[in-house]
Amino acid sequence: MELIGERINGMFKDIKEAILNKDAAVIQYWAKRQEEKGAHWLDINTGPTVSPEEQPAVMTWLVQTAQAASTLPCCLDSTSPAAIEAGLKVHRGQALINSTSAEQSKMDIYFPMAVQYGARLIGLAMNEAGVPKDAAARAALAMELVVNADMHGLAMEDLYIDPLVLPANVAQDHGPEVIEAIRQIKMLASPSPKTVIGLSNVSQRCNERRLLNRTYMVMCITAGLDSAIVDMEDDLLVDAAAATEILLNRSIYCDAFLKTFRQR
């Protein structure tokens, strides 16, 4: 289970201010902190306050600043292809692009970009028509992503399909559909594409957010989830991921399994 630390995101107040003031210390604190907590990737998002023209420069700065403090690879999170490419140019190691949708015009940009930079790519199971309403519609869009990966020569293990999680309070019926979609996506190709979700979405504006997040993550891992963008400050969430790996026999049990999971 790969955990992608969500914290370096301009939607958080301290990150937004750090971007405005070019304050590297805050970015580096969160880069290091999430690595210590057991993250495998650092999500990097410039946030909504940065203007489109500024986004590439801010992405460049964030990636370089974060990687100066942490050995982790980054998950470059932006709707701007120019910002993603700017991040890829300075990134050390194998980056993860977040994301393309299943719209052909977007796939035509991002799949060649991923191949050119040797990066992995998150593909959202949605298109111009919006978020699908059930598992079958999500799987159909996932298939288009799989076909495009094949066409462009992106290894199936480097494609991460996101079936799109919605909040449990306003879109409760989507919860089980996403779980079923994960199950179906894992059967679309051999080797199968990977799967990813933006976990914290499930509990937006809900009570007991961390409990909802953890529980949903475990349910999704059982269905075949490979990675999630998560709150690394939730130690019990990381513990739950470690325990699930053990219970699914994905890693060999030892008494120190919570520790070895964080060291991987």
Partner: peptide
């Protein structure tokens, strides 16, 4: 016992 082996190595 592979679990004990892993733990002792740790």
């Amino acid at each position: 016992d592979i679990n004990l082996a892993k733990q002792l190595n740790i």
